[in-house]
Amino acid sequence: MLHAKKLVLLLGCLPLLACQQPVGNSAEGVAPAPLVEQIDPQTEPVKAMRAHQQQQTMALADVGQLRAEVLQLTRDKSADNVQQCLVIGLGHKSCGGPSEYIAVSTKGHDESVLLKKISAYNQAVEAENMRKGMMSDCSVVMKPQVQLNNGQCELVKELTQ
């Protein structure tokens, strides 16, 4: 009888276990750990408010610093041919996909280092969106084409009709 109760209990928990998401990084859709220890606002309101402000400041500084590094790395858009030009998604919309696209030149850059830095920024933005419960308009930002214009990589602007 005792084994039957355990079996019923185990079978009752299986649907709950099947819905759990795997543990991993934010790229797998799992919310990142909080940046600071959670403090109960009911018992320690001042401490909780300070911790919340610290968390917001730390997160914004990290994302802002990564964005500045990416923009610095991608500032020089000079190229010898269009094959040295890439279109890279930058940022992250809450519904998925990049928030914008930028033209990038690989001339004189280690492409893998550049792509890793952009990926780190995109993951940081995604983590912040998840942490803050951000929402977006869910519109799809279409990936533009890239062209070489006077030795500079640039996005092709679509003509509106």
Rank of each mutant, 00 (worst) to 15 (best):
G29E: 02
A51Y: 08
D62T: 09
V104M: 06
M135K: 13
L73R: 08
P32G: 05
V23M: 01
V104C: 01
K107W: 10
V63C: 05
S136W: 00
T106K: 14
Q147R: 08
A27W: 15
D76C: 03
I88F: 11
K5D: 15
E69W: 12
A33C: 09
Y101R: 06
A31H: 13
M135Y: 12
S78W: 02
G97Q: 06
E37F: 04
D80L: 10
K132P: 06
V156Y: 02
G29P: 01
V46C: 04
L14I: 13
S119K: 15
H109L: 13
K107H: 08
R67C: 01
G29A: 13
R131K: 05
Y101M: 08
A59T: 07
Q145L: 12
Q123T: 04
H3R: 14
S99W: 05
L16M: 10
C95G: 06
K117N: 00
D80G: 00
Q56N: 06
V87Q: 06
V146C: 05
Q55V: 03
D62F: 08
K143V: 05
D62Y: 11
G91V: 09
L14F: 03
L159K: 03
V125G: 02
S112C: 03
C138T: 12
Q42N: 13
H3G: 15
E111N: 07
S26M: 02
L9M: 09
V87S: 00
G29L: 01
T43A: 05
S139D: 15
Q42L: 06
M142V: 04
K143N: 08
N129C: 07
S139T: 14
D62A: 12
C19T: 11
E128K: 05
L60I: 03
R131W: 00
E126R: 11
S26Y: 02
K107V: 05
Q83V: 05
T57F: 12
A61I: 07
Q84A: 07
G133S: 03
L7P: 08
C95E: 13
A51K: 01
K116E: 12
Q20F: 04
L35T: 10
S112Y: 13
